[in-house]
């Protein structure tokens, strides 16, 4: 028992290699999943298919990456799908005012909104679950109101969305942008004081507070990152659809939670990281098409997804590191 609690403590992040080893499980599961699908349907691992899979998976992966940050600190952000939908709507609505750089402004707006959520949650001492649940409701209303519940074409002059729709040497730009996001956030987590503080809060908030971590600032930042990634996910989506809609991101929230956990990030905080998020996002995205690849009867597709997600978590998460499982 004592062992368990030590491992959960601050010592965990000191060894930067430990997370890598810990994360091998999910990666192996992903490879197993892809290999299994390839045996049933060899076409799915062709280069073209994988690229198209990647561009379909990009929004989910972006949401998983963003969602990982609050969860690392033991909070949760349920508003991400709402933010992604509103992003698409705002890109259309604000275009007449802000012109071709609207989407960039919308991402900044999302960062601000996220920061506000983080601030309200920490400063007012309200559970993040309930704050973001309430904002999710507000966002869905805002999206309907602003769009008048209509799907509108994305203005063709929008710089960022236009760029995301293109490809760089055959690789979709969404994948390139995603890689840049992962690199930047990875650097933040691995090599800055902020990164260490995030893990410290997740491992034990009281201890972190006592040792001088500015919890309010860090949590504000975490929710800003989460909302920013959600806005990027929204842009990824509209770059594919070329239409906005108030319900664009629908149930991606649930997929993103599955992705975070399947990748090996502990929902209680302190354990996990970006590598886990990317692998988790890929696994989840693959899980939602696996029923089609295998050829399961349509009525049972939800069952297969549920069982597969449970199976993935059972296989991939290293629960010995966690003391109490809620």
């Amino acid at each position: 028992m004592t062992q368990t609690f030590e491992a959960r403590g601050v010592a965990g992040f000191a060894d930067t290699w430990l997370p890598l080893i810990r994360n091998a499980g999910p990666l192996l599961f992903l490879l197993f999943l892809v290999a299994g699908s390839a045996i049933i349907a060899p076409g799915v691992v062709q280069f073209d298919s994988l690229l198209s899979f990647l561009s379909d998976a990009a929004p989910v992966i972006a949401l998983v990456i963003g969602g990982t940050f609050p969860i690392l600190a033991g909070s949760i952000d349920l508003s991400v799908a709402g933010i992604a939908s509103v992003t698409g709507v705002l890109v259309v609505v604000l275009n007449p005012v802000l012109g071709p750089w609207t989407s960039v402004a919308v991402v900044l707006l999302a960062l601000l909104f996220g920061a506000m959520q983080g601030f309200v949650h920490t400063w007012l001492q309200l559970p993040s679950f309930i704050v973001t649940l309430a904002t999710l409701s507000i966002l869905s209303g805002v999206a309907l109101l602003l769009s008048n519940a209509t799907a509108e074409p994305i203005p063709s002059d929008d710089v960022l969305v236009g760029m995301l729709g293109n490809a760089l040497a055959g690789v979709p730009d969404t994948a390139v942008v995603l890689a840049v996001m992962v690199a930047l956030l990875g650097l933040l987590l691995r090599f800055t004081r902020i990164g260490r503080d995030i893990y410290a809060i997740g491992a034990g908030e009281r201890a972190a507070l006592m040792s001088g971590v500015h919890v309010l600032a860090i949590r504000t930042l975490l929710f800003a990152i989460s909302a920013g990634c959600a806005a990027m996910a929204g842009l990824f989506l509209v770059s594919v659809t070329s239409f906005s809609s108030p319900t664009l991101a629908g149930n991606l929230l649930l997929l993103s939670i599955v992705g975070v956990v399947v990748g090996g990030t502990a929902i209680s905080g302190g354990v996990g990281g970006l590598f886990a998020a990317v692998v988790g996002g890929l696994i989840t995205s693959w899980l939602r098409v696996v029923a089609v690849i295998v050829g399961v009867v349509p009525t049972a597709q939800n069952i297969i997804f549920g069982v597969a997600a449970l199976l993935a978590v059972a296989v991939t998460t290293d629960r010995k590191k966690l003391g109490v499982i809620k």
């Binding site: 899979f53 991606l252 089609v292 597709q301």
Partner: peptide
């Protein structure tokens, strides 16, 4: 027929179409 169920989610449909078309 190959039946795809989107659960009212367009992106789910797109992903499933991608997997269906991938096999040629």
């Amino acid at each position: 027929p190959v039946v795809l169920t989107s659960n009212y989610q367009g992106d789910q449909l797109l992903a499933q179409l991608g997997a269906t078309y991938a096999t040629g």
